[in-house]
Simulated assay, not measured.
Amino acid sequence: MHLTDIWFLLIAVLWTGYLVLEGFDFGVGMLLQAVAKDPVDRQVTLRTIGPVWDGNEVWLLVAGGATFAAFPFWYASLFSGFYLALLVILVALIVRGIALEYRNKLHDPQKHAAWHRRWDLAIVISSAVPALLWGVALANIVRGVPLDAEHNFTGNFFTLLNPYALLGGLTTLALFALHGAIFIALKTHGPVRDRARALVLPLAGLAVPLAAAFLLWTQTYDGSWITWVLAVLAAGSLITGVAASRMGRDGLGFLGTAATIVFASATLFVTLYPNVLPSTTDPAFSLTTTNASSTHYTLTIMTWVAVVFTPIVLLYQSYTYWVFRRRLTRDDIPQRGTPARPAPAETA
């Protein structure tokens, strides 16, 4: 295996990790007003992702940085061609981060409720927008975009809004919402958990047919026996996760939806390889792992850096999830002027 292949695999792993971790973040944000009916419930819901959401976004930074360093021509064509869509995603992520931090900064009782309503709505919208557009972007990468002989994007924003890409966006939107609902059920007790569990079946009714249609359509581009196996594993994981959640096995349900995202992402990247950005103008203009990569020397240095630092990052992020593993209840939210209830020692 060449270094270009290794780095294509590593970038696929980084994007998959981002989709799994940020996927339930987006789901929690989108479902905030559906599972939380009063300010205390909303605090419980947001605290499920409070310690981890910003750490999950680091996967996006690393994935983008690795793409820039390992495959600069892929990065250049991708970010120039998808400029407007990626700008919308970036704005949504900025608004989402501000909303999560600012919603608790006002302590004026007369303005408190209106302040919370505005920021909560911002969280819902800014979670749904990237959940939709990341699916659109990934679908376009697999399907291909119009590139000329110099690998310049010759389409426009509406070129990206083709039926296959829109189906991909709706798939990630529904799948992340389902992933988030099961995560809320895993991380809470009480009415928030009950409402989240009640949403699992309706969301599955959307996610399952959308995901099946999207993966079947993907097979028409460059399907192989490997991608068929991965697609079947994704479908099986999704059905297993939903069934486990309905039986009250929230941990197994969450693993099921996480595995679904992993297998679905693997299906897309295996379908894409050895291309990194196919050209619909002429296959000869496509960017591949060979013609889009950095020099061998650059990839060698990057590989040693990844070998040293990747395990460290995985260890401290795993430790973060372990420390904040306990389920949350309404009793964990302090009333004004009173301290929070001490956290018990038991695990989730």
Rank of each mutant, 00 (worst) to 15 (best):
F157N: 04
L215Q: 08
A185Q: 09
A185Y: 05
V136W: 04
V20F: 01
A340Y: 02
V308G: 14
A131W: 05
L46K: 13
F153N: 10
A258V: 03
T300I: 02
Q335E: 15
P163V: 14
T218G: 05
A213M: 10
L161A: 15
A243Y: 05
A76E: 14
N56H: 15
W304R: 06
R246M: 14
L84N: 10
A264W: 00
A264T: 01
F71T: 08
S279H: 04
F82R: 07
M247P: 00
V52K: 03
R197I: 09
D38W: 04
L299T: 04
V44C: 10
S224L: 02
V270L: 01
A181K: 01
P344D: 13
T347V: 07
L210E: 03
Q110S: 14
F285K: 01
L230T: 07
I98M: 15
G337D: 14
G190V: 11
L19P: 03
T220H: 12
Y83L: 06
G65Q: 03
I89N: 08
E150I: 00
D250L: 01
A131R: 10
W53M: 12
A259L: 14
N152A: 11
F73S: 09
I89W: 07
P311H: 11
R117D: 13
V208M: 12
L210F: 09
F254K: 14
I125Q: 02
E346Y: 10
P274A: 07
